[in-house]
Nucleic acid binder design. Structure first.
Lengths: 192, 192
DNA sequence: GTCTATACTAGGATAGAC
DNA sequence: GTCTATCCTAGTATAGAC
């Protein structure tokens, strides 16, 4: 709710960057693309991101981390039964990925970047996501190893479903995957 | 048009291209990268791929299609019990992705390419993969809709597991996903 | 904080010699 | 079939005016 503060402008730019890197990946985004999307001249962008494109991508990872924490994982920490909290998380996920029609920025940024600061950042966010889910399961009495295994499997189902939903243009795939992830997280069947 | 030797050279180059596009994605690969990987001068590459980088990527998709058909799906058509044939496919998949430590070229090529000839090609290969699995299930008496749903879910589990295995550097994730995919394909539990 | 101007590199592609 | 030479564009980044 600030007015005309520097933080606001940068935050708005990061929102645009998020969309760009999500749909085009790191190498696919040019400074010209960012300039066009934001309306700022190419040089002006270096005022907000002195280290250039690399810093822009890292800002996007930080933004993604905030989204995962505050939008996806937050519902898991609120009071209520575990199934209800999981449903709340899945609803947030469905929203975040527009029903599987938009890519995951973390997956997009992982392409072509092995062992870079960028890939480490994205890995951290994915790990945090898994840990958040596993914590909720453990609090509900599920054994630690089982809780982690289910969380990993559920996130994998969703990430893979995004790829297939987009490639085949079949939104039903993502819808089914949300249900499958729910079963995976809550299932009584052994996973490990 | 080809007689004997030209095809050989091109096939060898496509093998290198496959590795490059798989690890770096379409935008991440430069002609200079290809030149370095193959030992050929930049210009020489246009002898094999007159249309340039785009044609190189399409050759990689064709190569991936061959791999899926001949390495992954072929075991499903051989005689034997369904579980055994599925195990054979999963073994081929584990090999193809080096236990989840290397990306899927189809997923890599889908980043940043929506509604291009390239993305259509990769989507076709994924669809063919799903259809191949579904056919095997249907032949074993599983209802068509259920067969397709299980095949989609299994492939999603594997694709997502590759992302997480690479990001977190935990090969156990992919191993678990192979088992999960087996259960998904053979499970008696309802999916749709 | 945004602009113009500029430098410089890398990237994709072509022409033509051998 | 591979090379050298070249062209042109796009890309990243910097300097400095306003």
């Amino acid at each position: 709710m600030d007015t005309a503060s520097p933080g606001d402008s940068r935050a708005a730019i990061v929102g645009q960057l998020y969309e760009l890197f999500r749909s085009k990946g790191y190498e696919g985004v040019s400074i010209g693309d960012v300039s066009a999307a934001t309306g700022l001249g190419r040089s002006s962008l270096y005022h907000y991101f002195p280290a250039g494109k690399e810093e822009m991508a890292q800002a996007v990872v930080a933004f993604a981390r905030q989204s995962v924490e505050q939008t996806v994982l937050a519902p898991l920490s609120r009071p209520g039964d575990l199934p209800d909290r999981i449903d709340a998380m899945l609803a947030a996920i469905r929203e975040m990925y527009s029903g599987g029609t938009v890519p995951c920025v973390l997956a997009s940024l992982l392409v072509g970047t092995s062992d870079s600061p960028l890939s480490r950042g994205t890995a951290e966010v994915l790990a945090e996501w898994i840990d958040g889910m596993a914590s909720a399961l453990k609090t509900a009495g599920i054994a630690p190893r089982e809780a982690t295994a289910r969380s990993v499997a559920a996130l994998a189902q969703l990430q893979g479903a995004i790829i297939l939903t987009r490639a085949l243009k079949r939104p039903a795939i993502f819808r089914d995957a949300l249900l499958a992830a729910r079963r995976t997280l809550l299932s009584t069947m052994a996973l490990a």
